[in-house]
Amino acid sequence: MSVLSGMENSAGVVLRRAVELDNNGRFQESLVCYQEGIDLLLQVLKGTKDDAKKTHYRQKLRSYMDRAEQIKHHVVKEKEEGKYHKQIKIVENSTGYSYENLFKPYVDETLTEVWVEDPYIRHTHQLYNFLRFCEMLIKGPSRIKKINLLTSRDEQENGKDQQMCILQEIQISLLDYGVILEFSFSPSIHDREIRFNNGWLIKIGRGLDYFKKPQSRFSIGSCDYDLRPCYETSVDIFHNNHTRKT
């Protein structure tokens, strides 16, 4: 398969996903896929010599670009009116819901600070979840400078020490990337939510801990969270210019 054919196939996969998300009302996610697919298809167009194919690609591009622009205006209008709300139902044992896939549409260059409120960032696998979430933020395109975590203390004495040590390790590691981590504990915290200072508010029924335990350390999905089966949960996404705490 030539490089051009491979790129064309990739564009097709991404754009089909964009249409699927669009049809399901997941507009913010579909917009990201439309933009990615359009970029790929533009590269295919540039490398194509056949005039008939060029005409076909231009027609496809015009259609996708028009739809992407419509979605963009729709999302902007809802955000300005404070009416944006989307719910994602994660079905039991479903895959494809890594932090990167779930949060990517809301992580942009205007994002500099994040607040995570989750009572269950205390056991080892939950701390790994939080670490992966931090890695997702650092990869960009955000310019993250500060992450705030509010969670509960482990109830076991040994667990308390381990929880504190791991959080301090993450804190030190984040400093290498110019990111400050501040964490605090509350014995009464119950709700789970993540707030971005670019206006996005995400509430996940199970917090960051919605992945099932892999069958073994060397089973598929152990490393790649996109391949990890999930527990059933709901994700509610809002946009509000005043979600940031003062």
Rank of each mutant, 00 (worst) to 15 (best):
residue 71 I to D: 01
residue 202 I to Q: 02
residue 83 K to E: 11
residue 229 P to T: 09
residue 178 G to E: 02
residue 55 T to L: 12
residue 197 N to A: 07
residue 144 I to E: 02
residue 37 G to Y: 06
residue 24 N to H: 10
residue 116 V to Q: 03
residue 41 L to A: 10
residue 74 H to E: 14
residue 70 Q to T: 13
residue 52 A to I: 09
residue 136 M to H: 08
residue 21 L to I: 02
residue 240 N to M: 01
residue 222 S to L: 00
residue 127 L to S: 02
residue 95 T to Y: 04
residue 121 I to A: 04
residue 140 G to E: 05
residue 233 T to D: 01
residue 174 L to W: 04
residue 164 M to G: 06
residue 189 I to W: 01
residue 231 Y to A: 02
residue 236 D to K: 09
residue 29 E to H: 15
residue 188 S to C: 06
residue 34 Y to D: 01
residue 64 Y to M: 04
residue 36 E to P: 03
residue 140 G to W: 04
residue 6 G to S: 06
residue 21 L to F: 07
residue 237 I to V: 13
residue 148 N to E: 07
residue 106 Y to V: 00
residue 188 S to M: 06
residue 52 A to W: 12
residue 161 D to L: 14
residue 86 K to M: 15
residue 200 W to N: 13
residue 171 Q to H: 10
residue 211 F to H: 06
residue 1 M to K: 00
residue 159 G to A: 01
residue 90 I to H: 00
residue 151 T to V: 06
residue 246 T to Q: 13
residue 224 D to T: 00
residue 34 Y to N: 02
residue 232 E to K: 12
residue 59 Q to M: 07
residue 156 Q to V: 14
residue 235 V to R: 05
residue 88 I to G: 01
residue 130 F to L: 07
residue 30 S to E: 02
residue 188 S to G: 01
residue 117 E to K: 10
residue 230 C to G: 04
residue 7 M to T: 03
residue 42 L to C: 09
residue 145 K to M: 09
residue 120 Y to M: 00
residue 30 S to H: 03
residue 129 N to P: 00
residue 70 Q to L: 14
residue 159 G to S: 01
residue 174 L to F: 06
residue 147 I to S: 01
residue 243 T to D: 08
residue 136 M to P: 05
residue 203 K to I: 11
residue 245 K to N: 11
residue 51 D to R: 12
residue 58 R to Q: 14
residue 211 F to A: 03
residue 29 E to N: 14
residue 74 H to V: 06
residue 154 D to R: 05
residue 229 P to F: 07
residue 118 D to T: 10
residue 205 G to E: 11
residue 68 A to H: 08
residue 81 E to G: 07
residue 112 T to E: 10
residue 174 L to D: 04
residue 206 R to D: 11
residue 91 V to Y: 07
residue 11 A to C: 00
residue 14 V to S: 07
residue 107 V to G: 00
residue 143 R to F: 08
residue 48 T to S: 12
residue 80 E to H: 07
residue 26 R to S: 05
residue 196 F to V: 00
residue 198 N to P: 03
residue 97 Y to I: 06
residue 205 G to H: 03
residue 201 L to H: 15
residue 53 K to N: 14
residue 86 K to G: 06
residue 48 T to K: 05
residue 119 P to C: 05
residue 53 K to D: 14
residue 121 I to P: 02
residue 151 T to A: 09
residue 151 T to W: 06
residue 138 I to S: 04
residue 139 K to F: 12
residue 165 C to G: 03
residue 130 F to H: 05
residue 29 E to W: 10
residue 123 H to F: 13
residue 101 N to Y: 08
residue 60 K to N: 15
residue 156 Q to A: 12
residue 133 F to M: 06
residue 214 P to K: 08
residue 243 T to A: 15
residue 225 Y to C: 00
residue 64 Y to T: 04
residue 146 K to D: 03
residue 101 N to D: 07
residue 95 T to P: 02
residue 107 V to C: 06
residue 42 L to D: 13
residue 78 E to C: 10
residue 79 K to D: 08
residue 207 G to I: 08
residue 181 L to A: 00
residue 101 N to H: 11
residue 58 R to H: 09
residue 73 H to W: 11
residue 44 V to T: 05
residue 115 W to D: 05
residue 219 S to T: 08
residue 49 K to C: 12
residue 162 Q to V: 12
residue 46 K to A: 15
